[in-house]
């Protein structure tokens, strides 16, 4: 199937987000098609996380439209959006440090039935055997890499159709970064659409189909990830060449 035939699963149309008087997102539009990996790259403070938070309902855009799975979701609360299959694995992992690994996964499946949770839990333990070993451990005692895996597994417990990952490689050793990106590819292979925000632009562009480049609240460039990887401006600004 060619790219243009795939169904649009998420479309963000000209959203503006404010933090008090600060105009953080100034008219961002982007779209994600079914079965794609789309990445959003940019410097610190460009508004990448804010964009994701607005999509998931943690922040309310002052204007603009967000349509997911043919339904208007801008203005809806996260507790209404998550059960629709749109999940965010937030920046800095944000696992529940004082809950056990198992309880964290339980919470990931909060909107689903008990039997569905059990089924997904088994899946997660199969995919992440380390989490199975640490099932009863308090999550705050896990290592950084394990915490990132827990955060991703927790988001997957909701069985998302579209998974948004915010800086999954942040603060991890290179070998763990490789591992996280392997998992992202695997997830994509199993039919999850992914919107990935990353500072590690090289890694992000190498796994993504398409990419958006963001600068101070606006999208400045967009295109095929492979093309952006070789674009001079992108190389200079984000790839350190």
């Amino acid at each position: 199937m060619t790219e243009s035939q795939r169904r649009i699963i998420l479309s963000v149309e000209d959203i503006h987000v404010f933090y008090g008087a600060i105009h953080a997102i100034k008219g961002v539009s982007l779209e994600v098609r079914e079965d794609e990996i789309v990445t959003l790259i940019g410097a610190n403070g460009a508004g990448k996380s804010t964009t994701l938070n607005a999509i998931t309902g943690l922040l309310k855009p002052r204007s603009g439209k967000i349509v997911y799975d043919d339904k208007l979701i801008s203005g809806k609360k996260a507790s209404k959006i998550v059960p629709m299959g749109l999940c965010l694995c937030p920046e800095g992992r944000r696992i529940f440090q004082q809950l056990t690994v198992r309880e964290n996964l339980d919470m990931g499946g909060y909107t689903r039935s008990r039997s569905e949770i059990r089924e997904s839990m088994d899946e997660m333990f199969e995919r992440f055997p380390r989490l199975k070993e640490r099932e009863k451990q308090i999550a705050g005692t896990l290592s950084g890499g394990e915490q990132q895996m827990l955060a991703m597994a927790r988001a997957l417990m909701a069985r998302p159709k579209l998974l948004m990952l915010d800086e999954p490689s942040m603060g991890l050793a290179p070998i763990l970064v490789e591992q996280i990106f392997d998992i992202i590819k695997e997830l994509h292979g199993s039919g999850v659409t992914i919107l990935l925000v990353e500072q590690n632009a090289r890694m992000a562009l190498s796994v993504a189909d398409r990419a958006y480049v963001m600068e101070t609240g606006v999208i400045t460039m967009t295109g095929k990830a492979s093309a952006l990887l070789h674009n001079d401006a992108v190389q200079k600004a984000y790839l350190g060449n």
Binding site: L58, A78, R94, I95, L99, M107, G108
Partner: peptide, 20 residues
């Protein structure tokens, strides 16, 4: 468990679909 999650991190709890 939802209460403990909200207690620890309200916005992460929202991301789980918990109604605060």
């Amino acid at each position: 468990k939802a209460m403990r999650s909200v207690s620890e991190d309200r916005s992460a709890a929202q991301l789980m679909g918990i109604n605060i």
